[in-house]
Amino acid sequence: MDDRDLLARVQAVIGREQTLDDCAVLPLGGEYLVATTDMLHETTDFPRGMTPWQMGWMAVAVTISDIAAMGADPRAVLLAIGLDDAERLLPIMEGAHDCCRAFGAELAGGDLDAHTELTIVSSGIGTVSPEHLVRRRGARPGDVVAVTGRLGEAQAALAGYDHLTLRLLEPQPRVAAGRALGRAGATAMMDISDGLALSLYDLQAAGGYGFAVDTRRLPLPAGVPEKEGCEFALYGGGDFELLFTCPEDILPVPGVEAVVVGRVIEEPRVLADGAVLERRGYQHRWSGEG
């Protein structure tokens, strides 16, 4: 059982619409407020060798990336820290503050507690005008499928390609790209921190239509053999890039480095090079059914 299996239980309580996007969407005057939260544990989410500063940066980056995927501007982040060692607090806070400052948000408060394992919960809010909000649903047959940046570089770093270490330890949310794509007319969007394959299945579940991807077009990690790089690009987590669909004629979008990798299709399937793409990537799993 994985986190997406458990999502069905959550939907039974709060409804399917509340679980489809990277953020909750709430009307606020003439704008939308988008809100999201993420929990990171040291043994599960922080790669070995990370500094406390990098842990603070990453905790905020995952939240800001969700806001970026809605086409929104990040405004504020709250940080709750379950702390195992008091000496780690200051550099964690400095990393979190530096990430907020880099992407235009305010580190506005939070909570502290004592834990046996370092645990950081980052909650963020952003704002976006209704006409520029981009959800996971909205893709239409004939739209192109595109991604920002190079895929698989964080996974490649985990596999020992040390020249890509910073891509893993200091991820860069695509705030400017998300904002520009929302204003240009992207029809669907999400971040791909769990891998491209799972993200395509998430978009398909949200919008109903399918996708046909050409793996020869994937922007592979630099300095990695092609076959291995394709595996990392399809199934590796931690990239913080954006997956989006749009009419082909809006590309290129000024200021956005993006590569078209496929098209939206009528059939509710996810295909790679004409065959069904394996549904796997980075997921949390539970062994029991209780």
Rank of each mutant, 00 (worst) to 15 (best):
A105G: 08
A233R: 01
R279I: 06
M190G: 08
P221V: 01
V145I: 12
K227N: 10
V60Y: 03
A80N: 09
L181R: 02
E17L: 11
R88W: 00
A35F: 12
G149V: 10
R285P: 02
G82Q: 05
R279V: 10
L203M: 15
Q54T: 07
F46L: 01
T37M: 11
F240T: 00
A96Q: 15
A69E: 00
V128F: 05
Y209T: 12
V253M: 05
L242V: 06
R101L: 14
G109T: 14
L200W: 04
A24T: 15
E228S: 08
G185E: 04
A197P: 00
I265M: 13
Y235C: 01
D38W: 10
A206M: 12
G149P: 15
D66V: 03
A212E: 15
H132T: 07
V213K: 02
A188Q: 07
G15W: 13
G104F: 04
P74A: 04
A159W: 13
G210Y: 10
E278D: 11
L7T: 11
V175E: 01
T116V: 08
F232C: 01
T43G: 05
A180G: 06
D191S: 06
I250D: 08
G210R: 11
A233H: 01
D21L: 03
M55S: 05
E170C: 07
Q11C: 10
I64P: 02
L200D: 03
A139L: 10
P254N: 07
A212K: 11
R217L: 13
D214Y: 11
A24H: 14
G274V: 08
E226N: 04
E106Q: 09
A159T: 10
R285N: 08
V270C: 05
D162L: 09
G95E: 10
E266D: 14
W53I: 00
R136M: 15
D66F: 01
E231H: 11
D143P: 04
L78E: 14
M58K: 04
M50T: 02
R285G: 06
G229Y: 02
D22G: 07
I64Q: 04
A184F: 04
W286M: 05
P173S: 03
I125E: 09
G274Q: 09
